[in-house]
């Protein structure tokens, strides 16, 4: 999030209610416990190879209320969800879950990498996150494997009917 840090913060972009909004969401409850020790960033496998991904920084920006900077940032999507930060946080912040909550909010705004939309539309269509090639299905027979269980798009669609994120996906899939 280097680019965001270099840009001066204006008081007008601070949403002081943002931290309370996050704290009310499932997984974001312990956001305000963070005392910025940096265990999450120092143990993060992605931070080792990324110049921009710093979980501690994301948490701090969230506490400060820099809502748009956090939610519009591409960096947010680099988390590998390995949960190392969650397991090692001395304050039990559940860092990975807070980041997931933030990503969910970014996704609601339609700010989401293409790969997630593709997986979602594939699941709605077949049950599987990837389109399994015909060749693979035939090969199962050669390898002596039983036929793959089929998805039930109709039944699945009913259970997911009210999920908000789908508004960003269905247009593309159809």
């Amino acid at each position: 999030m280097t680019e965001a840090v270099q840009r001066p913060i204006k008081s007008s972009e601070i949403d002081s209610k943002f931290k309370y909004e996050i704290s009310k969401m499932h997984g974001g409850e312990k956001l305000m416990r963070c005392f910025q020790c940096g265990t999450c960033t120092s143990d993060c496998p992605i931070a080792r190879f990324s110049d921009t991904y710093r979980p501690r920084q994301i948490i701090r920006m969230t506490q400060l209320g820099l809502k748009d900077r956090v939610l519009n940032s591409d960096t947010l999507w680099l988390c590998a969800s390995c949960f190392t930060c969650t397991d090692r946080c001395p304050q039990d912040v559940e860092v990975a879950s807070v980041i997931r909550v933030l990503r969910n909010l970014a996704a609601e705004r339609g700010h989401v990498p293409q790969v997630f939309k593709e997986q979602c539309s594939s699941i709605l269509e077949s049950g599987y996150a990837y389109k399994i090639p015909e060749l693979r299905l035939k090969k199962r027979e050669t390898l002596g494997l039983p036929p793959l269980p089929k998805g039930n798009p109709e039944s699945l669609g009913k259970t997911l009917r009210t999920v908000h994120f789908l508004k960003h996906v269905e247009k593309k899939g159809e």
């Binding site: 979602c120 599987y128 997911l160 908000h164």
Partner: peptide, 21 residues
Amino acid sequence: PEFNCCGLPLDPVSHEMMLIL
């Protein structure tokens, strides 16, 4: 009997959808 994804890949975009799946 029938299959749908466990939900994990979609947790980043919708926790609710992951839970349902």
